[in-house]
């Protein structure tokens, strides 16, 4: 699919960052979701958590300055901000499972209109690896997903039922895509469209979405700065 003006990953990350409030404790999934940290809204200070046992980390160090005892869940070197803390793995996942983490932002293979998420493996082949994703989706107060609106082969990633193995059931409440911002009404099992690219018609957006998009009130314009 090639929609004019569709958002790149940086822009999707920027949009997600607008919804992170000052003082929130936030876990960003490995890869794409990590980009959200760079677009923290000025004047807000979220505290980033990483599963291996750090609260309050900052940017990556300069090349050659890495300390390999100081890494994030993606095994990348990090630096600390003043006020950071270290803790063991049981404590780290108590923060997650115990409902202390405000926001978890993850990638997705598929998200269903009932809030189910599939993001850890495509099928039964290969080496399975899950990490902390299943804990995060069941523990964080708010679970959001960043994703291209459709898969590389054009298949919808927003669907009625996930066909890939599930990471969690009824857990995702907001989806930021390359075309739209969509909330998941889990009890009613429906997608609610909140924002879309201004020039994109409802019909065209619905065409690339695998489940019905409901509208409640006004649909906002998804407007994002140029970023690359």
């Amino acid at each position: 699919m090639n929609v004019r003006g569709q958002l790149n990953q940086e822009q999707i990350a920027w949009r997600a960052a607008q919804d992170i409030e000052d003082g929130q404790y936030v876990n960003l999934g490995i890869g794409f979701p990590e980009k959200v940290a760079a677009y923290t809204v000025k004047g807000r200070e979220p505290i980033f958590h990483t599963e291996n046992g750090v609260l309050g980390f900052g940017r990556a160090p300069a090349k050659g300055e890495e300390d390999w005892d100081l890494i994030n869940a993606g095994k990348k070197a990090i630096t600390l901000k003043p006020g950071a803390a270290f803790f063991d793995h049981a404590t780290s996942f108590a923060m997650i499972r115990g409902g202390h983490l405000d926001v978890a932002i993850l990638g997705a293979l598929q998200v269903a209109s009932n809030g189910d998420l599939a993001n850890w493996r495509v099928g039964s082949k290969g080496v399975p690896a899950v990490g902390g994703a299943m804990d995060l989706v069941n523990g964080a107060k708010r679970v959001a997903v960043l994703t291209d609106h459709v898969a590389r082969d054009g298949a919808p990633k927003l669907v009625e039922r996930c066909t890939f193995p599930l990471t969690g059931v009824g857990c995702v409440t907001r989806i930021y895509t390359s075309l739209a911002v969509i909330d998941v009404d889990i009890p009613a099992a429906r997608f609610v469209l909140r924002e879309k690219l201004p020039h994109l018609s409802m019909d065209d957006l619905q065409f690339v979405t695998g489940a019905k998009l409901h509208v409640e009130g006004e649909v906002g314009n998804l407007e994002v700065p140029e970023l690359s």
């Binding site: 793995h89 049981a90 996942f93 499972r97 990490g131 994703a133 299943m134 804990d135 523990g139």
Partner: peptide, 23 residues
């Protein structure tokens, strides 16, 4: 799952044979 792995180990050390998790 990573948090389950950690808690299973903690439980082993703490004398808790089983526990419940949403994960």
């Amino acid at each position: 799952p990573q948090g389950t792995l950690a808690e299973r180990i903690r439980a082993g050390g703490a004398g808790i044979p089983a526990f419940y998790t949403p994960t």
